[in-house]
Amino acid sequence: MLNVLIVDDEKYIRNELRYFLEKHEDINICGECSEGEEAMELVKELNPHIVFLDIELQDMNGLLVARKILDDVNPPYIVFATAYDDYALQGFEIDAVDYIVKPFIEERIEKTLDRLRNRIELKEVDGRKTKDKDNIKLNKLCLTKNNKLYLVDIWEIKFIQSQNNEIIVHTKRGTYGCNYTLKELEDRFKENNLIRTHKSYIVNIDFIDEIIPWFNYTYKIKLKGEETEIPVSRNYLKKFKRRLSI
C-alpha cells in the first residue's frame, strides 16, 4: 500500500485528486492539507511514500516546500500538481518524480502512478526499503533495458545523464534506463567513485581521462573511450576540486 499526502490550497482540487487516486486499491490517502508549513509537518508525522504538491500555495512556494522535504533523510517522492506548466523544468531540477497539470486527466495520473510503482519496485529489487534509514549498501545498481532488469556493477558505470526528463546510465556494456533520480544516485553512491559534476551529470572518477579548464574557472571532462564532454558547473566545482585534490 502506498501512502499519499495531498497538498493544495483549493479543497475542490484536493477532492478531485483524491477521487482519481482512490480508484486504485494500492493507494491510501493518509492526509491532506492546504499550506506548505503544515505539509512539512505532516510529512514528518505521517511518513508518506508520495506527496502530490501544488506549487502556488498561499503561504509559500511549493518548490521551496519540496526542497525542504527532499533535504530530510529518506524523503517521499514528490509529484507536482499545478496549473502552471512553465514550472516544469524547475520541478525536475529539484528531482520531482513527475509533473501533472491542472485540470487533471485520469490517464495522466495513471501514468504517474505507474512510474511511481516502478520506482518503488526497483528499489525493493535493488535491496532497499523505502522507509528504512539503514539501507543495505550494495555495489550494484538495478537498471532497465528492453523491459528487462539488469544488476550492473558500479565500477562499470562511466557516467549518468539526465536527458529529456529521463535518466540514462552509460556503462562499459552500453546504455541503460534508470528509475532513480540523480539526487538519489548521488546520495546513495557518495562513498563510491561516482561524483556529481552538474545538475544533469554524475561521473565515475575512474574513467576521467582529461580535465579541461573552461570559462569562469569551470571545467569540462573527457572520459576514456567517450566523445561526450561533460561539464563541471560552478555549483559542483568546489566539491569536485576537493575530491580530486585540484
Results as ranks from 00 to 15, higher is better:
Met1Arg: 02
Asn3Ile: 07
Val7Pro: 01
Asp8His: 04
Glu10Gln: 07
Glu10Met: 02
Glu16Gln: 09
Glu16Leu: 05
Tyr19Arg: 12
Asn28Phe: 03
Asn28Ser: 04
Glu38His: 10
Ala39His: 03
Glu41His: 11
Glu41Ala: 06
Leu53Pro: 07
Gln58Gly: 10
Leu64Asp: 08
Val65Gln: 00
Arg67Pro: 02
Arg67Gly: 04
Lys68Glu: 06
Leu70Thr: 08
Val73Ser: 09
Val73Glu: 07
Pro76Cys: 01
Pro76Asp: 01
Ala81Pro: 02
Thr82Pro: 12
Tyr84Leu: 13
Tyr87Lys: 08
Ala88Trp: 03
Gln90Ala: 12
Phe92Glu: 07
Arg108Cys: 12
Ile109Pro: 06
Asp114Asn: 11
Arg117Thr: 01
Glu121His: 12
Glu121Ile: 07
Lys123Ile: 03
Lys129Asp: 11
Lys137His: 13
Cys142Ile: 10
Cys142Glu: 13
Cys142Val: 12
Thr144Pro: 12
Gln163Leu: 11
Ile168His: 03
Val169Gly: 00
Thr171Ser: 01
Gly174Ala: 01
Tyr176Asp: 04
Tyr176Pro: 02
Tyr180Asp: 02
Tyr180Trp: 03
Glu184Phe: 01
Glu184Leu: 01
Asp187Met: 06
Lys190Phe: 14
Arg196Ser: 00
Tyr201Ala: 02
Ile202Met: 10
Val203Tyr: 11
Asn204Phe: 00
Ile208Asn: 15
Asp209Ile: 09
Glu210Lys: 10
Ile212Gly: 09
Pro213Val: 10
Trp214Lys: 10
Lys220Met: 15
Ile221Gln: 07
Lys222Gly: 11
Thr228Leu: 15
Ile230Cys: 13
Pro231Asp: 12
Pro231Ile: 03
Ser233Asp: 06
Asn235Ala: 14
Asn235Glu: 14
Tyr236Glu: 10
Ile246Glu: 14
Ile246Pro: 14
